[in-house]
Design a protein around this nucleic acid. Structure first.
Lengths: 244, 244
DNA sequence: TCAAAAGTGTTGCGGCTACACCCATGC
DNA sequence: GCATGGGTGTAGCCGCAACACTTTTGA
C-alpha cells in the first residue's frame, strides 16, 4: 500500500445474519500506551482505514474487508458520506488516529460502505492485531467518532435497498431454508410475515430453486434447502413499478 | 467562505423539467488565457466547487446551487462519490482547476449530489461570471473530467429513488396538470403510461389535491391544476412492500 | 409419544390492465 | 367548425391477505 491520504477514509458497516439476529462486525480500538484501560476498555469502532493515495475507493473498502474477514468476493455498497467538519470530536480518538496513522489529522471525510456477509462462511483471520466481534444490532455500544450514526444510516440504506433488490441472499449461506429467509426479512424489515403467503410467493420465483437436499441435525422435521439462482434472476428480472 | 480544501469537492447534477423534457443545468468552463478558443469552445461542466475546510458537505452543495440558481430550499440528495485516482485525466482541465482555485491539485474526491428544481421558478442569477444553460439529457455533450459519468449515474439514482419515493413533484411547478405529471414519469422512467389508469391512480391519492383553478392560455380544453400536499402525504404514507 | 418446526389450500377483495369516445377551448 | 389535448367507465384477471391443521423428525 502506498502513501496514506489523511483527508479521506473508508468505513465499512459489515452486516451478518446468524439465522435469528442481524449483527455488525466491530473492531476493538487499541488503547494508546498512556490511556487508562480501566476507563476506556471496550472501545469499539467500525473497520475502516485512511485511503491510499493511488487506490480506488472501492478497492480501499475491499482491502479493509479482506483484512478483517479473509473473504474476497463479498457484497459491498457505498451508501453515504460523512464529512462534518466536527465529526472527529473526541480528542482521545483523534489522538489515537494521529498516532496509529503517524500523520497529522485535521478534517477527515469518510466514505461509508455497507457489506453483507454470510456469517458462518466468514473466516475472521485470527492473526490480525485488531480484534473483531459480531455484535447484535440492538446491543451496539457507544462507538468512537460518529460511528453509531454511520451504523444507523447503514441499516436504513440496507432496508431501502431491500425494498427494490433481492440482496437478502448475500446474508445467507449458499444453501438455506425458507425459514431462515423469512426470519431474515422479518428482522430487517421489522414486521412479521405470514409463512403460507411467504412460501407461495417463493414458489412463483424461478430463481429460488429447491435442492435435492434437506437440513440435517435438527430435532424436528428437516427443512428443504434452497439456493438463489442469480443467472435466472438476472434473466427474468422485471421492471418493478414506481410510486407517484 | 474559508480556506478551500483541495482534496474534496462537491458536484451537483441539477435536473429540471420543462413539461416535456428532462434537462440538466451545466456551466461553461471559462477558457484560460492561453487556451485556444477555436478548439476548446463550449467546454461544459457540472456546477461544483472544492469544499471549504469548515463547511458541512451539504452546505457546500447548497452554496453551489444558490450561487447558480438563486434558489434556496430545493431538493438535494447526495447519491455517490467519485474518487478514482485518475479521474482527473485531461491535463487542460487539471490546469484550469489549478489556476482557478489557486491551489496545487493532486487527487480530488468528489461528492456527487443531484438536485431537482422547478425550471420556471428558477431564476438563474444573470450576474454570475459563469454562464449556465439547461441542456436536454439526450443532448449533453462531452463534459470535463468524469462529469458525463456522474450525470448518467445521477439519472440512475433518480430513477431508483422514484421507484420508492414521490419526489417527482420537486420538478414541477407548485400548480401542475396531470398531463405534466404523467409526462414527467414517462420521460424519467422511460415508458408510456395509460392515461386513464394513471388518473385513476391519482384520484385515490389524498395528497394530490385538485385546485379550484384551471390552466390558462392554451388552445384546447384547459386542464385542472393540482398540487402536492406534503403534510397529507407524510401522514398517510404507508409501508411499501419489498422484493425477495 | 411428545415437542418442535415444516409444510400445505381456499376464498374474497382490491388493484391493475386493456380499451374508445365525448368535451371544452382558442383560433 | 376544426384542431388540440382534457377528461371519463367497465370488465376480467391476478395478486395478496386472512386464516388452522397435518406431517415429519429427533429425543
Amino acid at each position: 500500500m502506498n502513501r496514506l491520504n489523511p483527508h479521506i477514509s473508508v468505513d465499512c458497516v459489515i452486516f451478518g445474519f446468524d439465522g435469528l439476529q442481524l449483527k455488525v462486525l466491530l473492531n476493538e480500538r487499541e488503547l494508546l500506551p498512556d490511556e487508562d484501560s480501566s476507563i476506556l476498555s471496550d472501545l469499539l469502532k467500525l473497520p475502516g482505514s485512511l485511503i491510499s493515495d493511488t487506490e480506488e475507493l472501492d478497492i480501499s473498502a475491499y482491502r479493509v474487508l479482506k483484512e478483517l474477514t479473509g473473504l474476497d468476493k463479498i457484497f459491498l455498497k457505498q451508501f453515504a458520506v460523512f464529512g462534518s467538519p466536527n465529526r472527529l470530536q473526541n480528542t482521545n480518538d483523534v489522538e489515537w488516529l494521529r498516532k496509529t496513522s503517524g500523520m497529522s489529522i485535521e478534517r477527515v471525510v469518510t466514505i461509508a460502505y455497507y457489506s453483507l456477509v454470510k456469517i458462518n462462511e466468514s473466516n475472521p483471520n485470527e492473526s490480525l492485531l485488531e480484534k473483531t466481534s459480531w455484535i447484535p444490532l440492538n446491543e451496539v455500544p457507544q462507538l468512537i467518532f460518529d460511528h453509531n450514526i454511520i451504523v444507523n444510516s447503514a441499516l436504513e440504506a440496507l432496508r431501502k435497498e431491500m425494498r427494490t433488490d433481492p440482496i437478502g441472499f448475500e446474508l445467507l449461506p449458499k444453501k438455506f431454508t425458507l425459514r431462515q429467509l423469512q426470519n431474515l426479512y422479518e428482522v430487517i424489515m421489522g414486521n412479521k410475515l405470514d409463512n403460507r403467503n411467504f412460501r407461495k410467493r417463493i414458489v412463483k420465483l424461478n430463481y429460488l430453486v429447491p435442492l435435492s437436499e434437506k437440513e440435517k441435525g435438527v430435532s424436528h422435521k428437516p427443512a428443504q434447502l434452497y439456493k438463489f439462482d442469480k443467472k435466472t434472476f438476472l434473466r427474468e428480472r422485471k421492471d418493478i413499478g414506481f410510486v407517484i
